[in-house]
């Protein structure tokens, strides 16, 4: 029993960072007023870039470049949505399609059809003596990204809720015209938030290809970006909420994988597909119960037009 719990905690901590980073990225973009359904594509770009760069340089550096690639990809979204006032959902879905086909094209022309060559994974830190203690054992042996995800969520919560910058980001997402009258550069701040969102999604993707696995697989991130959007909505657009939802979804995934490997008979009672569908179903239920009291930022999806004030 104890071993099972340990295994569940361990694989949750392995699986969660990618989802947490991406969900935090979605929160950052949407709190500043720009819809981001392109998380899936940004993750894909980050995952591929990190895996490709890790072949020629140390993996931590490649992870940073994966982040940069995600940020660069998100910059397209920023230009389209903020400067050119395109429909934000369309732009995000277009980026998803471009990432899906474009990365497939790059993967094929660089490494062949199904995966990249395997790379050196990010280093894993053991806890020394702690690694012998039951239960705590499960916390040992993860990459730095696992702990970064937790710290980042907390930091994000504090910055957004307690600092002037956070106040400005929230203002720009709720009522940009009011923010502009007190001298906030709405356009610039929204740009930074969307690009930062891409960097976080890219980091999430990089976590998949350099920490969870040791290569880029052709279907990455296989819907995880949409699950991150679900986590953001489930967590009511707050950093800690998104963090909690992402961790919860990751735990669900760990339960599903754990059940499949150690108790195959359970999957006759509760099929795998039902467990996989559960996070989305729960998100839908929560949204339905919330009804019209949705916590979405008020100016979400509306381009900022200074001359139309």
């Amino acid at each position: 029993m104890l071993e099972l719990l340990e295994a569940l905690v361990w694989s949750t901590l392995e699986f969660a960072p990618a989802l947490i980073f991406a969900a935090l990225g979605a929160v950052l973009s949407e709190r500043s007023g720009t819809v981001n359904v392109g998380v899936e594509g940004m993750m894909r770009v980050g995952a591929f870039a990190a895996a490709a760069f890790a072949l020629v340089m140390p993996t931590p550096l490649a992870v940073l470049l994966g982040m940069a690639a995600g940020a660069l990809f998100a910059a397209i979204h920023a230009v389209l949505c903020i400067s050119w006032r395109s429909d934000q959902v369309i732009s995000g879905m277009a980026l998803n399609l471009v990432a899906l086909a474009g990365i497939t094209f790059l993967l094929e022309s660089m490494f062949g059809p199904s995966t990249s060559p395997s790379i050196a994974q990010l280093g894993r830190s053991g806890f020394g003596p702690l690694a012998q203690v039951p239960l705590l054992r499960a916390l040992s042996g993860h990459t730095a990204l696992t702990w970064l995800a937790a710290v980042l969520a907390l930091a994000f919560h504090l910055v957004l809720g307690r600092t002037p910058v956070g106040l400005r980001i929230r203002a720009v997402g709720e009522k940009p015209s009011a923010a502009a009258t007190v001298g906030v550069d709405v356009i610039r701040l929204r740009y930074l938030c969307v690009i930062g969102s891409g960097a976080l999604a890219g980091l999430g993707g990089a976590a998949l290809s350099t920490a969870t696995l040791d290569r880029f697989e052709h279907n990455m991130p296989a819907g995880l970006g949409f699950m991150a959007v679900a986590a953001m909505v489930f967590g009511r657009w707050s950093p800690l909420g998104a963090f909690g939802a992402a961790a919860f979804f990751a735990f669900g995934r760990a339960v599903q994988i754990g059940l499949e490997s150690s108790f195959p008979s359970v999957s006759d009672v509760v099929p795998k597909g039902v467990l996989l569908a559960l996070p989305y179903f729960l998100t839908l239920v929560v949204l339905t119960l919330q009804g019209k009291k949705s916590r979405a930022p008020a100016a979400l999806g509306t381009p900022w037009e200074p001359e139309a004030r």
Partner: peptide, 28 residues
């Protein structure tokens, strides 16, 4: 009825359908 934005709800409904059908009904 509930004011749920259709972009979010249809994203969820996609993955519910795909998972229930491809990972359960069609394999089970």
């Amino acid at each position: 009825r509930r004011g749920v934005h259709e972009v979010i709800s249809t994203i969820m409904l996609n993955w519910i359908a795909v998972n229930l059908i491809e990972n359960w009904l069609v394999t089970g």
